[in-house]
Structure formats: C-alpha cells, structure tokens
C-alpha cells in the first residue's frame, strides 16, 4: 500500500535539500542586488536588497497578525447554524 512507505516529499533528507536550495537562492539573489543595476523610482527602492527584507518582513507580519486576528474572530464551526 502507498500509505506504508513515505513519499519523496515526506522524507526529511529531501525536505532538507529543498530548504538548502532556497537558502542558496536567497543568498545569490541578495548578492545579485549589488551587481545588477536596477532602476529605482522611489527612495525606499535604493536601500540595498529592499525587496528581500520587505518580502520577508511582510510575510511574517501577515501571518503573525492573522494569528492575533484569529483570537478575535474564531468561532465554532456551527456558529451560524442556529441563526441564519
């Protein structure tokens, strides 16, 4: 049965490889920022690797604020069943 053995995506070594590729890609992308001339239209864009840290911080901020939002808006699954 398929369930008895682990698929490729469940093996820890494969997961580690995928992460490693991501880390290397991130390093290369930041390094590239110093060699590729990119056309900056607004002040913030001139900051080195602006897009990299803005992407990282945005994502972490979205997820962490969503966790706070969940504390406020979470209700049982049958919440609307008795009224609507």
């Amino acid at each position: 049965m398929a369930n008895d053995r682990k698929g490729w995506a469940d093996k820890p070594e494969n997961r580690r490889t995928v992460r490693l590729v991501l880390y290397i890609a991130c390093v290369l992308l930041v390094l590239a920022d110093f060699f590729v001339h990119r056309h900056a239209e607004m002040p913030a864009e001139k900051v080195p690797a602006f897009y990299a840290w803005y992407g990282f911080i945005s994502l972490v901020a979205v997820v962490l604020s969503a966790k706070v939002l969940r504390m406020i808006v979470k209700r049982p699954e049958d919440y609307y069943d008795d009224a609507s």
């Binding site: 992460r19 991501l22 890609a25 991130c26 992308l29 690797a49 992407g55 990282f56 945005s58 994502l59």
Partner: peptide, 11 residues
C-alpha cells in the same frame, strides 16, 4: 527577491 524571501519567511 520578494518571493524568495517571502518563502524564507514561511520556512
């Protein structure tokens, strides 16, 4: 850069 570091954020 934006996308790779956002994925890094998820990781």
């Amino acid at each position: 850069q934006l996308l790779a570091f956002a994925i890094l954020g998820v990781v």
